[in-house]
Design a protein around this nucleic acid. Structure first.
Length: 892
RNA sequence: AGGCGUGUAGCUCAGUGGGAGAGCACUACCCUGACACGGUAGUGGUCAAGAGUUCAAAUCUCUUCACGCCUACCA
């Protein structure tokens, strides 16, 4: 028989095979979902990556976990749909294209709106497909026939429909508010798009002199350049340092303006001087104070981050320069009392890290309070569950403190806001159809709002817009709500919460039943990956070098409940060795399945066959439970352990004597076991390692495949008939015996070539019979030439033997001439110490009345058994110690 | 300032009331007819510290320390 079959390569060539296998799946339309088909729906919508983006670790983890869920449920017979697609990513994409245009010597403004948008679409057509190809390299089994883009006509219709209906309900409004303005991106951004960075700045104490002999006030500020926008000075009404009542007016430095004192509880007595300059146009809190006190708004910084005419001679300066100049000039006038260093946090743009300039601005908002309450309610009443559950609390906190969502962006790339303004009567028209005249006054050509919507507005509709909304499609009826949303916890607020708010509002039901939140991927040192740190690991380069399967396995094996997932090349390389192991197990298996005739006579399954079937069955249950509970790490660990430690290390070795033996019926039986169990193993591993398993499945002869793809074959379910605790116990006797002898050999350095002749002493007739029956097999596994089994209670250990004491008997390994007694003594001493300690602990327990009366009976029973076993072992150890001591003593 | 999380073997982490675990790394020996991308055996831990609850604590409670992250209106 050929040991290295011609038809299987020496190792898995992932670079060639993965692409071929993916094409095979696509050619057989294996990813397509059929809304008319049978089965309970299992639906996932992919978190859409940026259309111009490139695959990074976050996507890789996201997609791997989703693919595991999707493949598992598809094999389990669910009507499975995974909707893929991409996001237009307003700011990010526009920035990328603008940078490109800059390199071409042109710009957005030079081109004008229409020409610019045309260029962005071109860019999208050219590079937009890139990330889709990268997802395929991971093995993603999305239904690509349903791929969507947030700016597809259908999805744009959904956006418009939702905007208009929310507007009509009064849930979308337009108004002047202080918003977060990015002077570089030249747009407003929402509160959660602002990140906070610690900076070292100065706190300036500036004196505002009193008018008409009134007292002066000293304010503390980090932003002296904004004083041109001041409209008041505020103090806390309970501050003893200032008059409790009465008017007071102060002169605004560097200007000829006079501003009042107001009293407002917002002001913190502890901070600075307890007096706050009120700049409502450039600070959200000051804005609120101004509203409470009916103060005017003065804008002193414009959208380029330059000072306005309100700043008089400082007009046109940037804020940083203005700050220095104002401070100098205040100092020259003796109004700058002091400066002190201050470490504080400043808001920066999450895209470009430019310092955010709060500005008074006319923007569109979504009224979020009611929507957020509904979203919270859907979690509270169990319609949506977070996994892990701990995130629910964070979710409630945030939903309870939510502020209105600024949805307008001063960009060109995105869904243009469907609002028009009549230049004649000033009416605002929000409409599903583009109006050509004002419905109120009939004036022609109302002007369309130039702004576009926040990208997350369209993302929020993703679970139903991708299924055909606003049309009432078959898909929407069958697949909404979706089943699971898989994403990182960092976008709970950006995306998950908003999908819930919109789904509940627009569809009247939650968008998904479970939110599965996974860790964030970090480098081996636990740092966030970022280009500036230079620690970015490119998933594609990992796939190139090691393959998609081991990469997926590494991700899944760490997707537990931790908040960080540390990926390293070494770890992936380790799992590629596991792929190799599987591959070689397959080579062995296939070499014994050549010319297999399933009809030829076979004996009843032997003990190894019964055992491995039972173990495969147990593994099937573990994997199913783990995946159903989103414990990807447990699923990976379970199948890894089964394949490596049980199938390869034991079963293949146990099967060899049968396969190579004279008994044809036994050999045939073993071959059938191999075929059946190996096929099952591939199915168990498939959701995590789809490529290599599909490849090997295709090489298996006969029954398991029937020419059907593995990915469309049934996932093994737990079968009570395969569960065989007797076989597991019986194999335990054999394993114990082999391990005992191997340990003795290892401990005393017996050369591998040297044969030993162990003796097993047991009073258990079952163990005795099994060991005797499998003696030839055991001899091979132990490197022994002879194996004796005795049930004679008077049998004693040969003086030169190593002894292993097991729950059911003893294994003696005579080592005449090969034994190092000093080493044996050390080993015995160590084992004796450990046993004495454990025995003492168990005895203390069992003499404790409280323990005996309160602990469950089975726990007490177990402790008793364990104590008895340990005592027996200790007795053996003491005996051996005595023998060794005597011999050593004789040697003197 | 509040909230959340983490602290277990050299490293990465699992274990959430009853005998301290896995992978990697390390040590020794071995190319034994699937695999040296391998095999067999082994070393290694006051479960951050302290107190409490309990018959019993890595696990529950409290306190402390260290390190993360998130949210917030101290200019």
């Amino acid at each position: 028989m050929s040991q290295s079959p011609e038809h299987i390569e020496k190792s898995f060539d992932h670079l060639v095979a993965e692409g071929r296998i993916y094409k095979l799946w696509e050619a057989q339309d294996a990813f397509r979902a059929d809304p008319d088909g049978p089965g309970e729906p299992f639906v996932i919508v992919i978190p859409p990556p940026n259309v111009t983006g490139s695959l990074h670790m976050g996507h890789a983890l996201d997609v791997t976990l989703q693919d595991i869920l999707v493949r598992y449920h598809r094999m389990m017979g669910f009507n499975t749909l995974w909707v893929p697609g991409t996001d237009h990513a307003g700011i990010a994409t526009q920035a990328v294209v603008e940078r490109y245009l800059e390199g071409q010597g042109t710009s957005r403004l030079k081109l004008g709106r229409e020409a610019f948008l045309e260029r962005v679409w071109q860019w999208k057509e050219e590079f937009g497909g890139r990330i889709i190809g990268q997802l395929k390299r991971l093995g993603a089994s999305c239904d690509w026939s349903r791929e969507r883009f947030t700016m597809d006509p259908g999805l744009s219709r959904a956006v418009r429909e939702v905007f208009v209906s929310l507007y009509e309900e009064g849930l979308i409004y337009r108004g002047d508010y202080v918003v977060n303005w990015c002077p570089r991106c030249h747009t407003a951004i929402s509160d959660i798009e602002v990140e906070h960075e610690e900076r070292d700045d100065l706190l300036y104490h500036i004196r505002y002199d009193g008018v008409d002999g009134g007292r002066s006030l000293t304010v503390a500020t980090t932003r002296p350049e904004t004083l041109f926008g001041d409209v008041a000075v505020a103090i806390n009404p309970s501050d003893p340092r200032y008059p409790k009542e009465g008017e007071l007016r102060v002169r605004l430095p560097l200007t000829d303006r006079v501003i009042p004192l107001v009293r407002d509880p917002y002001v913190d007595l502890e901070f600075g001087t307890g007096a706050l300059k009120v700049t409502p146009a450039h600070d959200i809190n000051d804005f609120n104070i101004a509203l409470r006190h009916g103060l005017p708004m003065v804008e002193c910084i414009d959208k380029d981050g330059l000072l306005t005419e309100a700043a008089g001679p400082y007009r046109g300066l940037g804020v940083d320069e203005a700050r220095v100049r104002v401070a100098q000039d205040l100092g020259a006038q003796g109004l700058l009392e002091k400066t002190e260093p201050l470490r504080h946090k400043v808001g920066v743009c999450y895209r470009c890290r430019t310092v955010i300039e709060p500005l008074l601005s006319l923007q569109w908002f979504v009224r979020t309070k009611g929507l957020a309450e509904a979203a919270s309610g859907s979690v509270r009443d169990g319609r949506v569950a977070f996994v892990p559950k701990t995130w629910e609390r964070t979710f409630f906190d945030w939903m309870g403190n939510i502020r209105d969502w600024c949805i307008s962006r001063q960009l060109w790339w995105g869904h243009r806001i469907p609002a028009w303004y009549c230049h004649s009567c000033g009416k605002t028209i929000v409409s599903r159809e583009d109006p050509d005249k004002c419905p109120d006054c009939g004036a022609d050509a109302p002007e369309r709002d130039p702004d576009v919507l926040d990208t997350w507005f369209s993302s929020a509709l993703w679970p139903f817009s991708t299924l055909g909304f606003p049309e009432k499609t078959k898909e929407l009826g069958r697949y909404y709500p979706t089943t699971v949303l898989v994403t990182g916890f960092d976008i709970i607020f950006f995306w998950v919460a908003r999908m819930m708010m919109m789904g509940l509002k627009v569809m009247g039901d939650v968008p998904f039943r479970t939110v599965c939140l996974h860790p964030l991927v970090r480098d081996a040192q636990g740092r966030k990956m970022s280009k500036s740190k230079g620690n970015v690991i490119d998933p594609l380069s990992i796939i190139d070098r090691h393959g998609s399967d081991p990469f997926r396995f590494a991700l899944a094996s760490q997707a537990g409940s931790a908040r960080d997932l540390k990926i390293s090349d070494e770890r992936v390389a380790g799992y590629s060795r596991f792929v190799n192991k599987l591959w070689n197990a397959a080579r062995f298996t296939l070499s014994h399945l050549e010319n297999l005739d399933p009809g030829s006579p076979a004996s009843a399954p032997g003990l190894p066959g019964r055992w491995i079937r039972s173990r495969a069955n147990g593994c099937a249950r573990e994997v199913a439970e783990a995946i159903s509970g989103f414990h990807f790490d447990r699923a990976a660990d379970s199948v890894y352990h089964f394949i490596r430690d049980e199938f390869c290390d034991w079963f293949l070795e146990l099967a060899k004597p049968l396969l190579y033996g004279e008994d044809k019926a036994q050999a045939q039986s073993a071959r059938m076991d191999l075929l059946k169990v190996f096929g099952k193993t591939l199915a168990l591993l498939h959701p995590v390692m789809p490529f290599v398993t599909e490849e090997l499945w295709g090489k298996l002869p006969g029954a398991p495949g029937n020419g059907r793809l593995l990915m469309l074959s049934p996932f093994p379910v737990f079968e009570p008939s395969e569960h065989d605790p007797d076989a597991e116990r019986d194999i335990g006797f054999l394993m114990d015996t082999v391990r005992a002898v191997r340990q003795a050999r290892g401990d005393f350095g017996v050369p591998p070539g040297a044969k030993v002749s162990p003796v097993v002493a047991t009073a258990d007739p079952l163990a005795k019979g099994l060991i005797e029956a499998h003696a030839p097999l055991l001899l091979k596994l132990m490197g022994a030439q002879k194996l004796d089994v005795t049930d004679d209670p008077a049998a004693v250990k040969p003086g030169d033997a190593a002894e292993a004491i097991l729950p059911w008997g003893k294994v003696w390994t005579p080592l005449s001439g090969q034994i190092d007694l000093k080493q044996e003594k050390a080993r015995l001493d160590k084992e004796g110490d450990k046993l004495s300690k454990d025995i003492a602990a168990a005895e203390a327990k069992l003499s404790n009345q409280g323990y005996l009366s309160k602990a469950p009976a089975d726990v007490v029973e177990e402790t008793r058994d364990r104590l008895a076993a340990m005592r027996a072992r200790l007795e053996g150890v003491r005996h051996s110690q005595g023998l060794v001591a005597r011999v050593l003593g004789d040697m003197g």
